[in-house]
Every structure is written in C-alpha cells, then in structure tokens.
Design a protein around this nucleic acid. Sequence first.
DNA 1: CAGTATCCGACATGATACTG
DNA 2: CAGTATCATGTCGGATACTG
Lengths: 118, 118
Amino acid sequence: MRKEESTNAQNEAALIRNCGMAYALSVIGGRWKPNILYCLLKGKMRYNELRKAIDGVSERMLVAQLRELEEFGLVKRIIYPEVPPKVEYELTELGYSTEPMLNMMSDWGNKNREVSLL
Amino acid sequence: MRKEESTNAQNEAALIRNCGMAYALSVIGGRWKPNILYCLLKGKMRYNELRKAIDGVSERMLVAQLRELEEFGLVKRIIYPEVPPKVEYELTELGYSTEPMLNMMSDWGNKNREVSLL
DNA sequence: CAGTATCCGACATGATACTG
DNA sequence: CAGTATCATGTCGGATACTG
C-alpha cells in the first residue's frame, strides 16, 4: 500500500494537467455538464431552476457536476444567507469562454449526426 | 422482460441521435478517441503503429475504440489479405472534418488549464 | 430550498493469455 | 500482425431517504 503505485485516477489527473484536450474533456465531459453550461449561458439560475430546466438530472448528479464546474473555475456559487436558503449559480468569465467551443461541437454534431444514421 | 422499460443505454442512444452535443461527445469522448483521431489526422496508420504511438493504450481498448469510430463513419479499416496480416486505419472525410473542432478544444484547454491551477 | 448520505448496478477500462 | 476471450476493478450515475 505504501508503494509508489500510480493509480488510474492519478494518471488521469496528470493527463488533465498536461494536455489541453484532456482538460477540455474533463470540463465538458460528464453526462450533464454541457447541459448545465448551456443553461447558465443564458444567465444565472437557482438550484431548483436548474433541476427543472435539465430534464432527468438527479439531485446527486446536479450537485456533483456543479461542484466540479466550480472547482474548475467555470461556475460561481452565490449563497444568499436567508431562510429558506437561496443559492444562485452563474458562469465566470472562464465559463462564458466555453461558448464558442460548445457551439462548435454542437454544430458539428447537428451537421453530421444524420450522416451515420442513413 | 417484454415491458417497455427504457434502459439507460437506450436513453443515451436516443440522446445521441437527437442532440448534436451528445453526438459530438460520443464521437470524441472516451479515453482514447481524441488521441486516435490526432494520430490519424497525420495520415493512415497500421494497428501496431497506433499502439506504439498511443502511450498506454491496451489492445482491447484500441480495438474497441477504433471499432466505434468505424461505426460512426469517421475511420476506414483497410484490410490487406496477406500473411502476415496487415490492416491500416485511415480517416474518412467525416473523420477529417473533426479537425477544427478538436483543435478548438485543445486550444481552449491549453489556454485555460493553467488558470484553474494557480 | 438546497442540499447529504447511502446503497447499488451498469459500464468503461485494464491486465493477461490465447489465436488465425 | 492483428486481433479475441476472459476476468478483474473502479468509477459513474441512478434511486431513495434524510436534513439544516
């Protein structure tokens, strides 16, 4: 257990640090991240608004992916110290900078997905 | 068993058919696909050349992801009926059309990955 | 309202041995 | 050379119940 066995998770982390593509995929990969990003591109939203806007997402995954986006610095979490609680999520500048990339991917997909379905 | 229970896999498949972003991610997602695509953008390669070029990939995963890329119509598999066997992989036009998207993602990643590591 | 905690199954990936 | 077959493992994500 003490040995220098580099785990897969560690290798992945190293990859993400060193490779732009891996980093980009870690940011927009994951089942719900693109969807979250798209929602927030339209403006800040509350937790429950996101839940309703994103069809099928569970609380667990929504929180998890929001936290990851926060760690990566794409999303700001704004907590209003009230009762009942109110939390808003908003894109940072870095978050907004993903828009052209997201659009390009989406456009490429929409243009070409019919091709392989003929 | 006959019931209309839609599995996760089925839902995913439906998503991929209907959403450009999901389709794009299904094409370039996966641990090795971007790497494979980058290799093949430089020109056609044999199976073993790919193995050597892509550090750390197992035979199992290389074959699996090549097959997926083939299904999506991004990669052509060229079999030479010789002994010993010779197989080359080459991008289709659709495969080459991913280049701008891949570059954009890679560039975005390289530009921004330092940001979140400060 | 905005989350946590817990459990669980499905799937992606890895390691290794074998084959036409 | 270019794969298959088999087994093992860990992570992702879903369902559900609970909480400050």
